[in-house]
Write a protein that binds this DNA or RNA. Structure first.
Lengths: 231, 231
DNA sequence: ACGGTATTATTGTCATACAATCTGTCGAAA
DNA sequence: TTTCGACAGATTGTATGACAATAATACCGT
């Protein structure tokens, strides 16, 4: 965890751009979201400590944080495992996601500035351009960028704080659902409806388009989940 | 933290009904919710360790958990402080609460069993009986009981997991707003509308009644917050 | 093959330590 | 007198090591 501080004009001492715990936390989080652990897999503390080169108390702090966000579960005398929501729970999470993103779209249509709307349209353009060559990482990046604008500029910054844990808990399904053949084009079309409604300042249409979009994503994800339950 | 194990027929060793960390966490949480700390107050780790009789790593785990839930904030090299949301943030939180409780009411009206509805009515009855002698702790208990039913039986168990942190962050306002003269009666009347709508299985009315109720609570809380900003 | 027991691995928790950083104080210079 | 800077104390951020309690596993005798 050494950080080179070479830039001469800057402050000499740049010990940690962020706390070490935050780094451990984020590393662990993205490892889980990227599927580097199986659902339900036991997270052995000593192994992770050695792998990341940090002490056990620090690692545990990171784990506790992720536990609070619902990404991992704690089993009383067994330790931490990657959360593995049941099908019912996944359905409930999608339902929540639908409501929260619908709310964000509604607020954005109500309160977004013209500049915000322009940003949103730009992000949508980037996403649209990917329909022909759907590469996983690009699609994911463009989607995140779109939603980052939607959440950050919708006028209610707290939506993001509650939505993020929800998204984390269904992230293991989202990857797949976007790359199904044909699904991307449909999905982008649905998102286009959201953008249109926002552009027209049609509050209800924006909310409904957003809810519809997530409902479709949920259906796609749940079908897949039912087919491969242990995935 | 000694636990007497005297019952003869039971297992002899009853070390911890729950993990010690959970206990520390909950103790700390309720202390904060009960206003035993000022908003923005610095939480000094060593003091809390001694007060609760636990080690610093364990205390920190509890603090990190509460941080993840938004109850406390971490300031880079200063440690943890009790979260002190700005007026804008409080407004955003009430907006979210309104949407989420509206959703719960809607789902309850859609999916609650008759037995669930009967339970809800019973809780409402208990609340109604308190209008004449509004004692803080009773009102709070009855309100929690009502909402516990509403959240647990609405058919989407995830709503509670996202709503709870939201409620925690505005808890410091909720106490006051219920005890304002006249407000309780009005509040109970609003809740009564929710119950009625649910009884009638009127999904939209249930959602709207719930949203309206929280909007009124928000207005009351925000007026108070603007009058006593440092409260 | 099966049931019970011993061993091992791992968690839950503690005590302690120490460098880095922040805070506040006190003195020195303008 | 006011302001600036250095010093000391307090507190965090992180590490090490330890130990009891529990769960998992392997072993062994029947």
């Amino acid at each position: 965890m050494t950080i080179s501080s070479s830039a001469k004009g800057q402050r000499l001492r740049v010990p940690r751009p962020t706390s070490l715990r935050d780094h451990v936390q984020e590393t662990l989080r993205s490892s889980i979201l990227n599927g580097e652990f199986q659902l339900g897999e036991h997270l052995v503390e000593r192994e992770l400590c050695e792998a990341m080169g940090v002490s056990r108390p620090l690692l545990r702090e990171a784990l506790v944080h992720l536990e609070a966000r619902g990404l991992i579960d704690r089993i009383p005398a067994r330790g931490f495992v990657v959360a593995q929501p049941s099908i019912d729970r996944v359905a409930a999470l999608y339902e929540l996601r639908s409501a929260l993103e619908g709310l964000a779209a509604q607020f954005f249509a109500e309160r977004g500035t013209e500049a915000d709307i322009a940003s949103l349209k730009a992000r949508f353009g980037e996403l649209y351009a990917l329909i022909d060559k759907p590469e996983l990482s690009s699609v994911r990046a463009a989607t995140s960028a779109f939603y980052a604008i939607l959440m950050d500029r919708c006028g209610n910054p707290e939506i993001r704080t509650v939505l993020e844990p929800v998204l984390d808990r269904i992230a293991f399904l989202r990857t797949q659902s976007m790359t199904r053949p044909g699904r991307l084009g449909q999905s982008v079309a649905e998102i286009g409806k959201i953008v249109e409604a926002i552009k027209a300042r049609d509050v209800d249409a924006a909310r409904i388009a957003s809810e519809t979009h997530i409902a479709a994503a949920a259906e796609s994800a749940l079908i897949r989940l039912r087919d491969f339950p242990q995935d």
